[in-house]
Amino acid sequence: MNKIESKDVNFFYGASQALKNINIAIKPNTVTALIGPSGCGKSTYLRLFNRMNDLIDNTKINGQVLIDGDDIYAKGVNVDSLRKKVGMVFQKPNPFPKTIFENVAYGLRVNGISDKKLIEERVETSIKQVVLWDEVKDKLKKSAFELSGGQQQRLCIARALAIQPSILLMDEPTSALDPISTAKVEELIYELKTKYTIVIVTHNMQQAGRVSDTTAFFYMGELIEHDNTKTIFTNPKIERTQNYITGRFG
């Protein structure tokens, strides 16, 4: 069964249509890269999966978005629970103005977990998962702002993992990072794939090539092509995809 599926999705900001008739199916435990020129609707699309666009006034969606077979835009769906299942990592590291420990514990606390031991356990495993433990284990009580940008971003990933989602959405997670931090995050994505279904927006073609199983190319709100990453990068069916990937337009 498909983990995520979108059927004839149209999305509007007020009167302007940002997504046109998008149909995509994503298999569990894969990494899907969303690529395309700036403003083509990648972020908008990604944010449909955890209903983040609900926060923006005057937006409208039609069509269906299914996760594990359930329409997440159906009536009576609890958005908070949905977001627990669908974690998100943002473009810029955005830790809370709290301690490192509390940042990771936050998702647990707001979801009604108060057992101290359980929280400590989860915080530790999550930070270990993002290979940050050795760097921060002695300063868990320090402010998260004291970490470097790359460390902050990994902390944000740990924060998302702590509530044990099954899907991880990442919107240009390495665009604010230096090459070494970027490499670390990419490695991490590769490892996380065994447990999570990952959708990642990126402007970096090499990155898409390195980490993803399938790639979707968007252009002006339309899905031009979605296929195995290898196929898209070596043998795309549509010329516009080819042009974009080889950098003939931007």
Partner: peptide, 26 residues
């Protein structure tokens, strides 16, 4: 910052939790 609020909501916090745990402290 919007990002701060979105991060909270994306973790499954309700709007109210986001207000008193993130917006007010910030």
């Amino acid at each position: 910052p919007r990002a701060m609020k979105e991060a909270s909501l994306a973790l499954g916090a309700s709007k109210w939790q986001t207000i008193y745990k993130v917006v007010v402290p910030y």
